[in-house]
């Protein structure tokens, strides 16, 4: 575990699926968005490697909370809670 509960994070604005074959478990609507770590969920094999039957590194998985208003201008007010692997998260000051 490298990120503390309560840390502010930003989801990487990366689009590997546009570079070639890829399997991504970070939904498109969160790329580049800011959220907060609410729970550490454990370490799990990296799905981006498993999808190609390659040796998969174990990575920290976090429950990250977002505000729907930060994701869509017309969204109904809601919390959006999503599991995200650590290599997609950048800690914010």
């Amino acid at each position: 575990m490298t990120l503390d509960v309560g840390s502010r994070v930003r989801v990487d604005d990366r689009w590997p699926e546009r570079q070639g074959p890829a399997h991504i478990r970070t939904p498109h609507y969160l790329r580049g968005r800011r959220g907060k770590i609410v729970r550490y969920l454990g370490e799990f094999a990296d799905p981006e490697q498993l999808a190609f039957n390659r040796p998969a590194q174990r990575r920290a998985l976090y429950h990250v909370m977002f505000a729907s208003a930060d994701l869509w201008v017309d969204a109904e007010p809601a919390d959006i809670l999503v599991e995200i692997f650590d290599h997609w998260l950048v800690e914010e000051a």
Partner: peptide, 8 residues
């Protein structure tokens, strides 16, 4: 077959 291969 992993579930991620299925999804991919």
């Amino acid at each position: 077959l992993t579930v991620d291969e299925l999804r991919r």
